[in-house]
Design a protein around this nucleic acid. Structure first.
Lengths: 152, 152
DNA sequence: ATAAAGTCCATTGTCTTAGTAGACTTTCAC
DNA sequence: GTGAAAGTCTACTAAGACAATGGACTTTAT
């Protein structure tokens, strides 16, 4: 049940972009090389990922000197599920329980297939978390923990 | 978030072996070719899978004429999580939240990494389902649905 | 002795993943 | 209007995982 590197890097980048900008400079814009440097990722690989995210409508970009990437929508309107699906495809562990890419799995009777029942539960559990967690939720959780650590 | 074919076939086979034997013939023993035929799987591939499951202590086998495979334990003591981990490895989507194969993921601060927080939730959700669903639970659910369909 | 079953190990073809390379386009500062 | 800084686009590749396949060997019942 693995998150790919594409998915991981993409999610990390989106979370970075969702972090409130230093001094009222909105929308928070960052360049590929900023992100790739801070996360220690190949910038060429990250480039592809951000482009994919842009083409999916989750990021906007500005070309030329002083350009960069920024979120296409407020951080509370972008969910981890959206990002995940763009980069890693369907959430479902098996196609016959996928909402976005259903395909029969070949079991004699889908309706009474025990594996399908269980995998359907798994799919729903994953989707519930990813689709109900926004980038804003993530940055907020991060901040809460940081505050707690500071106050020790 | 994909279940591999190994995992899928292995789970299907285990569920078949957990189904109550026709006429009091316990332990329910089946041969590779029975299972591979009923599930339309390559018998050579299934052979490897069942052998892996046997070496992991989830199946027992009997060699020679009239031999076959049967569950090493009662169906209510074998969980989907055990089978899954043997065939597909850790449940966690990212190594830094894995219980059975932890590795640092390289984020600057693991404790406040937002991605890690979210993926930890996902891991727990998946593990909770897989580790609390036994083969007996599956066959029972199947039977309940079959009964319902019959009574229409 | 023979046939039926599991065991074990090596190999193979295909696909996916993660990354690399390089040419091209847009924008800004000067 | 030129040059540097940024994103865009397409193609390619190396390594590994995945899904088998093949064949020789061992055990057991009859």
């Amino acid at each position: 049940m693995r998150l790919s590197k594409r998915g991981e890097y993409g999610l990390r980048a989106m979370i970075m972009l969702a972090e409130p900008a230093p001094k009222g400079s909105f929308p928070a814009m960052m360049q590929i090389k900023d992100i790739s440097h801070r996360e220690q990722i190949s910038s060429k690989f990250l480039e592809q990922i951000l482009l994919t995210l842009k083409n999916a409508g989750l990021l906007h970009s500005k070309m030329g000197v002083g350009g960069g990437y920024y979120l296409a929508k407020p951080a509370n309107e972008i969910t981890l599920g959206q990002i995940f699906r763009v980069l890693d495809g369907p959430v479902a562990p098996i196609k016959c329980v996928s909402q976005m890419a259903y395909e029969p799995c070949g079991c004699p009777d889908e309706e009474t297939c025990g594996l399908r029942l269980a995998m359907s539960d798994v799919r729903n559990a994953i989707a519930t978390i990813l689709d109900n967690t926004s980038l804003a939720d993530i940055t907020q959780r991060q901040n809460v923990i940081r505050q707690k650590l500071l106050s020790i």
